[in-house]
């Protein structure tokens, strides 16, 4: 990577001349930091990278990255990015979106990106609130959330973005947390290595409208007791002394094992064919169980853009047709 064409990159190379406009203390800053670190580690070249976002606080992200950037319209970033990726599969295309942007107004495009397995890397900043519009509940807000638009508490049940992504056929599904910088960097690098659609849900604190949404498991003091780090081919263990584990019953219901039963802890396989264990982890109660972070699923499968380009290439080699032949086709006749 140290040729003239691919110079070594440093974090500062990705900074733009624009002032970052997030509220001081917003979790978006840590995410920007982690992404810039990860990009530098991967040696991403500025001109090969495109970052496409929708609308929301999170979607301001492209302005702060010295790459190609397109800040589009609410919810549509995956669709626009799909057009970019199909047109030029060589580009490295990232999508930055929020929980409202991706799960609410853009839900349709989001699930169809999974269905197609198009090579987009989607960073979903989940602050469980509509930040930019000043604090209404979002499709990931917990039920009963009191906000300006739900003074008596929201009636809606929330989505689990991970479960939704798994259900839609996502081939790379992971979760990180804004304040777990090094872990997030690692996940971004893993997402990058995946050829198809990669979704990284990032728990992000909105200190203005939903402060502390994740502190019950993300703060330093409780982290070890509350976070379950998913590690490929290692048992699902957590706790300061790794003395608690998750096992599954025959119906893939999770239960906690300790002591002599610790050996029953499920050995995590992020490449498993069945999405059942990942789904179980994605939907288990946040209060009764630890909060899993890391890679839920990673399975390679041919990408959409490769399939589309392959059809074009094959058709081109099979049939040559000049413009004249194209126009002068079918039943034609001459008038003298």
């Amino acid at each position: 990577m140290t040729s003239v064409d691919r110079p070594v990159m440093q974090k500062k190379d990705y900074k733009t001349d624009q002032d970052v406009r997030w509220c001081p203390g917003c979790g978006d800053y840590s995410i920007l930091n982690a992404v810039q670190n990860a990009f530098a580690k991967m040696g991403k070249q500025l001109h090969e990278t495109v970052i496409i976002s929708g609308i929301g606080c999170s979607s301001r992200f492209p302005y702060y990255m010295e790459t190609f950037g397109f800040h589009t319209i609410h919810g549509r970033a995956p669709a626009i990015a799909t057009g970019v990726k199909i047109s030029n599969p060589a580009l490295d295309v990232w999508v930055v979106t929020g929980d409202g942007d991706a799960m609410s107004i853009g839900g349709n495009h989001f699930i169809h990106a999974m269905r197609r397995n198009i090579g987009l890397k989607i960073l979903l900043f989940n602050n469980r609130i509509y930040g930019l519009t000043k604090g209404q509940f979002s499709p990931t807000s917990e039920q009963g959330k009191v906000t300006k638009s739900s003074p008596l508490g929201s009636v809606d049940y929330p989505f689990s973005p991970i479960a939704l992504t798994l259900g839609a056929g996502g081939t790379f599904v992971a979760r990180g947390v804004d304040v777990f910088g090094a872990h997030l960097e690692e996940i971004v690098i893993k997402a990058n290595a995946h050829s198809g659609t990669a979704v990284v849900e990032i728990y992000q604190n909105c200190n203005i409208f939903n402060d502390g949404a994740f502190k019950g498991f993300s703060e330093k003091e409780v982290r070890d007791a509350r976070i379950l780090y998913l590690e490929h081919q290692k048992p699902l263990l957590w706790g300061p002394n790794k003395d608690q584990g998750i096992a599954f019953d025959a119906q893939f219901r999770p239960y906690i094992v300790t002591g002599a039963d610790l050996g029953k802890a499920y050995v995590w396989d992020e490449t498993a064919e069945t999405p059942a264990p990942a789904m179980a982890l994605a939907t288990m109660s946040e209060t009764e169980f630890p909060v899993p972070v890391g890679v839920f699923r990673r399975r390679e499968k041919p990408t959409f853009e490769a399939g589309v380009q392959a059809q074009v290439t094959a058709a081109k080699s099979k049939k040559k047709e000049s413009l004249r032949d194209l126009l002068y086709a079918g039943e034609i006749w001459d008038v003298k």
């Binding site: 397109f70 589009t72 319209i73 549509r76 669709a79 626009i80 057009g83 970019v84 047109s87 495009h109």
Partner: peptide, 8 residues
């Protein structure tokens, strides 16, 4: 949207 992405 995809057409816009393609033009882009």
């Amino acid at each position: 949207a995809a057409a816009i992405g393609a033009s882009y």
